[in-house]
Every structure is written in C-alpha cells, then in structure tokens.
Simulated assay, not measured.
Amino acid sequence: MSKLWVYGPSTALGSERIDVAELLEQYGPVRPDFMDKTGFHTLYATPDDVSAMDLAVESIEKIDDGWWRDAVDGLVHVSSTSVLTAPGNAHLLQARLDLKKETFVLDINDACTGFVRALAVVDAIIAAGLARTVLLVAADTYTKLYDPSELKVSPLFSDGASVLIVSGAPLSNVPDGVVAHEWEIIASTFRSEGGHAADLCITPDALRESGHLTMNGGAVYTFVLRNIAEVVQDLTDQAGSLDDVSWYVHQGSRTVVTAVEKVLNAEQGSLFRSAGYGNVVQSSIPFQLADASGDESTIGFLGFGVGLTIAGAVVRQRRI
C-alpha cells in the first residue's frame, strides 16, 4: 500500500443555529423518544445566499495557503448540492481559489459514503501520477433540500464542509498549528444496492435549485444492518485484526451508530459524537477527525447512506 501525507482537516458549519427541540415543538408532534433516537439537539444551516461552494471556501480559508498553494496540483470535490448541474463545484472552486490551470480537477457526486470513497480515489490519483498533492474537499447544504416541517429529515442534517490536503510526499514549510499525519490504507471495502436508491435520494424540484431530499429512515437502517457485519468481516480479513482500531463512523443518527457499535464490539455511546452539530453528510468523518487527538496508530472509517451504499477503510496512522 502507498503512503499518504495528510494535513488537516479543516471544517466549516452553516452560520444559522437550529434548536431541534424548538423545531419539533413547532412542527410536531413526534414520539416522546424521538430526540433520544436521532441524538441531535443542535443543527446549523446556511442563509439562502450561501452555497455549498461558499462553505467549502470557508473551510479552506481557515488554512493559511502560503505553504500548500504551490504544491497543490489536484482538486477532488465531493458534493450532491453543487451550484450548477454541470460543471460541478470542483471546477468552480478551482477558479475561486485561483489554482493553476494544470490542476487535475474532479467532481464526485456522492453523499454519506463520499469521504471514504473519495479517499480511495485520491489515493489512486496520486499512485497513478495524475497529481502529487490533492485538496480533498467535501461540502453540502442539505438544509436547502426540504422544508423545516418535513420531520423525516429536517431534525437530522446540518450544512457543513471539510478539507484535507493529501500528498504523496511530505510537504515543506508546514506551520506548527497544522495537524499532519502519515497514512497507509491497509483495508477497504464497498457495497452498493442501487435497487434501493429511492429510499434516500435527491430528486428534481421546481421550488428548490438543488432538488428535494426524501428518506425512508427505516429502510436505510435495515440496509446498514443487512451489510455491516459482512463489511466488518471483509476489513478484518484484509487488515488481519481490528482489535486496536479507533473507529470513526458516519453520524446518520444515534440509533444507527448504536447498531454499528454492537457489530464493532465498541462501548455503547462511544462512537456517536455529533449531538451538537448533526449529520453533515460526507463531512461527517472529517468533522470527527478534526476533534480527535490524532494519536491513534490505527483508525477505521465507516460510511453509509445515499445509494444505498456502505464503505469502510482501515488506515495505519503516524503523527508527524
């Protein structure tokens, strides 16, 4: 497996705070245990004039660009709420950041498993020599995809963005405040059941530029239960053992994370970390990494959702 030098992540949230209890009081009623099952008490939305690309730029601008700008020759952007249908936000972001025209630019239309799958793509891009240093950006504004009264989705999602700088070699002149690691992907696995796409999807909508989000939460939960044990076994077979892995799991809801914890033999409640900011789609794992100590020697990623898909990876990690 090739080694990657990873810097960050940096993250950004929507500026408008949403109190979930107040949202439910306004548009309910709901079951008494609703918030216990979802797990989220606070969410964040963007104003109407702020796009997913604006959030992406905000996350990038938090990293001083004096040390990485000249090194970056690749940009991979993951989103399902791009400003335009085509081109996607990666190309618009390349112009917005004034990156050189030789930059390898790629848009990935993905969601909840987007970070795990995009990391595999970036690894392949670097290994193939298409780029040496890649900005891996994830950004979405899901709160624009539904009305607040749609309680199957509105108490779950926040608008968020994240960025990692991923390189095939160590970068120089890295500021002291930037978190840096050496990564080696030692296991990865992916599952898709496109026949269940309608259970969690964004469809065209005359009233919303980015479309309309619909979700059958029970079907998504059943999909995860149907596949998670097989995915974990596949990662075990590749990595040899998962005993020392520190896990970062997509924060779909407390209920689904609890189900994953049981399969991983993790302490109940230990992997649900997003009560204060909600489900930020493909940025879910980077948000957790931003809050982590970064000292773990082996980390694992599990994402699941839109597709329906599930993806996992195990990474050896060394802080540098």
Rank of each mutant, 00 (worst) to 15 (best):
R69N: 07
S2Y: 02
V121N: 07
S210G: 07
H77L: 13
V220G: 01
L235W: 00
L55C: 09
I299D: 05
S293F: 01
T203H: 04
V72L: 09
Y248K: 01
L242K: 05
A95C: 12
V105E: 11
A290W: 07
L302A: 09
A21K: 03
T42C: 07
C201A: 11
G195L: 06
T309N: 14
Y221G: 05
V121Q: 11
A311D: 13
A86E: 15
E267R: 12
I186M: 08
L84N: 15
S149Q: 10
G14Y: 01
G252P: 03
T143E: 04
G129Y: 06
V224D: 06
R318G: 06
G303F: 02
I228E: 03
D110R: 00
V166N: 06
R254K: 15
V166L: 12
V137Q: 04
A161P: 02
S283G: 15
I60V: 13
I125C: 04
G8A: 04
S172A: 15
D147L: 06
S188C: 06
A127P: 10
G300D: 03
T42I: 11
A95F: 09
A52S: 15
H181G: 10
E209W: 08
S192D: 04
A259D: 11
L302T: 06
V245W: 05
D159N: 09
I60H: 03
F40K: 00
S246H: 08
V314C: 07
V315C: 04
G211I: 05
T113S: 13
F287Q: 10
N109R: 12
Y248Q: 01
Y277I: 13
T85V: 07
S293N: 11
D291F: 02
A56H: 01
Q317C: 13
D123T: 13
I125N: 01
S2E: 08
Q268A: 14
T203I: 11
S246C: 09
L92V: 10
L308I: 07
I108K: 00
T113K: 00
N265V: 12
T141K: 03
D65A: 12
L207P: 02
E209K: 14
L4A: 06
R316P: 08
T11Q: 03
S80G: 05
L308V: 03
R226N: 14
V134T: 11
V116K: 11
S2R: 08
N173A: 13
V121Y: 07
S167A: 14
L302D: 09
S293T: 15
A229S: 14
D64H: 08
H250M: 13
V178T: 14
P9R: 04
L92P: 12
G39K: 00
S274R: 00
G168K: 02
L97P: 13
Y146P: 09
Y221A: 08
L4G: 05
L84K: 15
K62C: 09
A187H: 05
L92C: 11
L302R: 01
R117N: 12
F223W: 03
L135C: 04
A128E: 14
L130W: 05
V76F: 00
R226Q: 12
